[in-house]
Write a protein that binds this DNA or RNA. Structure first.
Length: 107
DNA sequence: GGAGTGACACGGA
DNA sequence: GTCCGTGCCACTC
């Protein structure tokens, strides 16, 4: 169902501009507590089958593509990010600070 | 109805 | 500097 938390995470992820990424902690922090970062991943896990959710733009605090393991193709997530101009090295975002996008800055 | 799980993050040893 | 344990909230079995 479209609960607040559920819908909130999806809305934020959908608003991530191309060439930018965000972290679970930032989304969780925007929702209330960054401790709820796990909930963010959980929501995406439920919506991972939804192509409208650019989950590949969501990474952990280290910029590591942790979510890629849930993608169909292990390289899919990296390719999508590289396609947007984000440089990935060893499954990790190189210039994370330059591509980092925070919901608070846009919302 | 109770217990376990999960795409994380932080503090302390 | 690295490793371990804890907290968080909602869902599923």
């Amino acid at each position: 169902m479209n609960d607040n938390f559920y819908d909130k995470v999806i809305e934020i992820v959908c608003k991530i501009p191309p060439g930018k990424v965000t972290t679970y902690g930032d989304i969780a922090e925007y929702l209330g507590s960054r401790k709820s970062a796990r909930m963010v991943g959980w929501v995406l896990n439920k919506q991972k089958g939804n192509p409208k959710i650019p989950a590949h733009r969501v990474v952990n605090r280290k910029g590591l593509l942790t979510g890629k393991i849930h993608f169909e193709g292990i390289n899919l997530m990296q390719e999508l990010l590289e396609n947007e101009g984000i440089e990935i090295k060893n499954d990790q975002i190189v210039h994370l600070d330059k591509v980092l996008w925070k919901p608070k800055e846009n919302l």
